[in-house]
Amino acid sequence: LTLGVMFWFHKDWNKNFLVFAALAWFLGYGSEVMGVHTGFPFGNYNYGPVLGIKLMEVPLMIGVNWLLLIYLTGSILNRLINIDWLAASIGAITMVSIDYAIEPVAIALDFWSWEGGIIPLSNYIGWFGVAFIIHMIYRKLQFKKENKIAVFLLANLVAFFLILNFIV
Rank of each mutant, 00 (worst) to 15 (best):
M136T: 10
I93T: 03
G126E: 12
I134P: 06
S113T: 15
A106S: 09
P104G: 03
L121R: 03
I125W: 02
M136W: 11
S122H: 06
I83K: 14
Y124P: 00
A92L: 06
F128N: 05
W112T: 02
I70E: 00
I98E: 00
D84F: 09
G74P: 01
N78K: 11
T73S: 15
D99P: 02
D99F: 04
G129T: 10
N65T: 14
H135N: 15
A106R: 10
S113D: 14
H135Q: 15
D110A: 15
V96I: 07
N65G: 15
A131H: 15
W66Y: 13
I70Y: 06
A106C: 08
G63Y: 12
I83E: 09
L69D: 03
D110Q: 13
K140M: 08
N65Y: 11
S75E: 04
N65M: 13
I70H: 00
D84T: 10
I62C: 07
W127I: 00
I70R: 04
N123W: 01
I119E: 01
I70P: 05
A88W: 10
A88G: 03
Y124E: 04
L86I: 10
E103D: 13
T73Q: 07
L72P: 08
G117K: 14
A106E: 00
I125H: 00
M136N: 09
L68K: 10
Y71P: 02
L121P: 07
G63C: 08
R79V: 02
G117W: 11
F128I: 03
I125E: 03
W112R: 02
D110T: 14
P104F: 03
I133W: 01
